[in-house]
Measured scan of single mutants.
Amino acid sequence: PREAYIVTIEKGKPGQTVTWYQLRADHPKPDSLISEHPTAQEAMDAKKRYED
Score class of each variant (00 low, 15 high):
Lys11Thr: 06
Ile9Gly: 02
Ser35Arg: 01
Ser32Thr: 15
Ile34Ser: 00
Glu10Phe: 10
Ser32Trp: 11
Tyr21Gly: 00
Ser35Cys: 03
Thr39Ser: 10
Gln16Tyr: 12
Glu36Phe: 03
Gln22Thr: 04
Asp26Tyr: 09
Met44Trp: 14
Ile6Ser: 00
Val7Ile: 12
Ile6Ala: 00
Gln22Trp: 02
Thr39Met: 03
Ala40Gly: 06
Lys47Phe: 05
Tyr5Cys: 04
Leu33Lys: 03
Gln16Lys: 12
Asp26Phe: 08
Asp45Arg: 11
Ala25Lys: 08
His37Gly: 00
Ala25Trp: 04
Gln41His: 09
Glu51Thr: 08
Arg2Lys: 11
Leu33Asp: 01
Tyr21Phe: 11
Tyr21Gln: 00
Gln41Thr: 09
Thr8Asp: 04
Val7Cys: 11
Thr17Glu: 12
His37Phe: 08
Ala43Tyr: 00
Pro1Gly: 14
Gly15Ala: 05
Arg24Pro: 01
Gln22Lys: 00
Met44Lys: 09
Glu51Met: 13
Gln41Glu: 14
Gly15Pro: 15
Gln41Arg: 11
Gln22Ile: 04
Thr8Val: 13
Gln16Ala: 12
Ala4Cys: 14
Thr39Leu: 04
Lys48Pro: 00
Pro38Lys: 13
Glu42Phe: 04
Glu42Tyr: 03
Ala4Tyr: 14
Glu36Arg: 02
Glu10Lys: 11
Arg24Val: 07
Ala4Gln: 02
Thr19Ala: 05
Ile9Ala: 05
Pro14Gln: 10
Leu33Met: 07
Glu3Met: 15
Leu23Trp: 01
Ile9Thr: 07
Tyr50Trp: 15
Asp45Thr: 09
Thr19Pro: 06
Ala40His: 15
Arg49His: 10
Trp20Met: 06
Val7Tyr: 06
Gln16Asn: 13
Lys29Tyr: 15
Asp52Ile: 12
Thr8Gly: 05
Glu36Trp: 06
Ala4Val: 12
Ala25Asn: 05
Lys13Cys: 11
Lys48Cys: 07
Gln41Met: 10
Gly12Tyr: 05
Ile6His: 00
Arg49Thr: 09
Asp26Ser: 14
Glu10Trp: 07
Ser35Asn: 02
Asp45Gln: 13
Gly15Cys: 06
Ala46Lys: 02
Asp31Phe: 15
Lys11Met: 07
Lys29Pro: 15
Ile9Phe: 07
Gln22Leu: 04
Thr19Arg: 09
Pro14Phe: 10
Lys47Glu: 02
Asp31Pro: 08
Thr17Phe: 11
Lys13Met: 14
Tyr50Lys: 02
Lys47Pro: 00
Tyr5Arg: 13
Tyr50His: 06
Asp45Leu: 14
Pro14Val: 10
Ala25Ser: 15
Val7Thr: 09
Glu42Lys: 06
Gly15Tyr: 06
Ile9Gln: 04
Glu10Arg: 09
Thr8Lys: 15
Ala4Pro: 09
Pro28Tyr: 07
Arg2Thr: 09
Pro1Asp: 09
Val7Arg: 10
Ile34Thr: 01
Val18Arg: 11
Ile6Pro: 00
Val18Lys: 13
Lys11Cys: 10
Ala46Pro: 00
Asp31Lys: 10
Glu42Pro: 01
Glu42Cys: 06
Gln41Asp: 09
Glu10Ala: 08
Ala46Tyr: 04
Ala46Trp: 03
Ser35Thr: 03
Thr17Ala: 09
Ile34Tyr: 03
Leu33Thr: 05
Lys47Met: 10
Gln16Thr: 09
Ala43Val: 05
Ile34Gln: 04
Tyr50Ala: 03
Thr17His: 08
Lys48Val: 10
Thr19Ile: 14
Gln41Leu: 11
Ala25Pro: 00
Pro30His: 09
Gln16Glu: 14
Thr17Leu: 13
Asp26Gln: 08
Ile6Asn: 00
Trp20Cys: 06
Lys13Trp: 12
Ala25Thr: 15
Glu42Met: 07
Asp45His: 10
